[in-house]
Design a protein around this nucleic acid. Structure first.
Lengths: 198, 198
DNA sequence: GTCTATAGAAGGATAGAC
DNA sequence: GTCTATCCTTCTATAGAC
């Protein structure tokens, strides 16, 4: 049995994924976490905002770990891309298009309304981009170019979640992954060519 | 002076862009539209849901028109891509990262909570993808391939809005546009090569 | 048909018993 | 420090005056 604080965090993350920040009531959170309502304010004295910040940071970290695991398991960066996009598409299908990114919806909701939470989402995105960019750079892609590619990868994942959930189809997510794999592979081919030529 | 119904529609769209569906109160809408509260229910008897559906459809149409104008003005499909992404980035900068896509936030919020609105957003996205795909197809890209590319373009725009608003920087949107321009241009180069060769 | 006042429900937050 | 009962605000929606 996990601690109450942990259960509140994971329950909030789950609800944020499907309903967003404003759509999630704290009573719903404690009900799902099977915790008394008061314990939420015991563990998060700052209320909904503090809870949300903690959820953004912890689930941002969780996704980053997941991404690293997939990348480590893949034979090359190109297949890591499709592994990740296809994996996200499969999860969407299996969960009735409910189980998406816990950051995305919240990020759009708070971007112009809550600067503390906006900054928390920005740090998560930056960390994801940084992780992906380092991987690309380790395969010889120039640093600035790696950041551009990594940014597009993260943006396309988030957009893929949006389109796939709206259409209730895995295709937008999968199609994005296929094309971005091509882009990454042609980039790596360029690197190899340049390296060989030089 | 526009009609009351029109003012309510545009005000709601404006608020949806920066606050989303759940974050926008109907009193806020009527205040911004300078309309008495009751007139909202006169023009939209179905309340918030009916209003939201109308906003999704009308602003979806408006964005499609904007996209077509940019495409018509561009010298080639590649520059149309960067024109669009750079234009979106410029609007974000000029408006303090407030004036983004009126559909995106709402789409994520309602995807698992309101099937009528989910379907409305899905139709808008499908219509955007269809428009972009037709343009690509008219330049010789195979139909299925055109749909894939168009899907990625729309997904990347939405993801670009998300990352740029979170970071309060135009770079994610611009970087995505630069890379996708390359992708589109290399696709068109392939088409020309194949056409020439055949 | 335009507008105000209010109903009824749900939200976040807190006080205080144990 | 765990939990319940309640406060106050805000939301959507409606009733009804004009």
């Amino acid at each position: 049995m996990l601690g109450t604080r942990e259960r509140i965090l994971t329950s909030t993350g789950e609800l944020f994924r499907r309903q967003g920040y404003n759509g999630t009531a704290l009573k719903q959170v404690t009900a799902l976490a099977d915790a008394p309502f008061g314990s939420l304010y015991h563990h998060f004295p700052g209320g909904k905002e503090e809870l949300a910040e903690a959820v953004i940071k912890s689930s941002g970290q969780a996704y980053q770990t997941l991404f690293e695991l997939i990348e480590d398991a893949a034979v090359d960066p190109g297949s890591a891309v499709t592994d990740f996009f296809d994996g996200a598409a499969a999860v969407l299908e299996q969960t009735g298009y409910v189980d998406a990114c816990p950051i995305g919806t919240v990020a759009l909701e708070v971007a112009s309304t809550n600067d503390r939470l906006r900054q928390a989402t920005a740090e998560v995105f930056a960390s994801w981009v940084d992780t992906a960019a380092r991987r690309l750079a380790s395969h010889g892609v120039a640093p600035a170019r790696s950041i551009e590619l990594a940014t597009l990868l993260v943006a396309a994942v988030e957009g893929g979640f949006m389109l796939s959930r709206a259409a209730r189809s895995p295709e937008p997510m999968r199609a994005s992954g296929r094309l971005l794999r091509e882009l990454v592979e042609s980039e790596l081919a360029t690197v190899r060519t340049v390296t060989t030529t030089t």
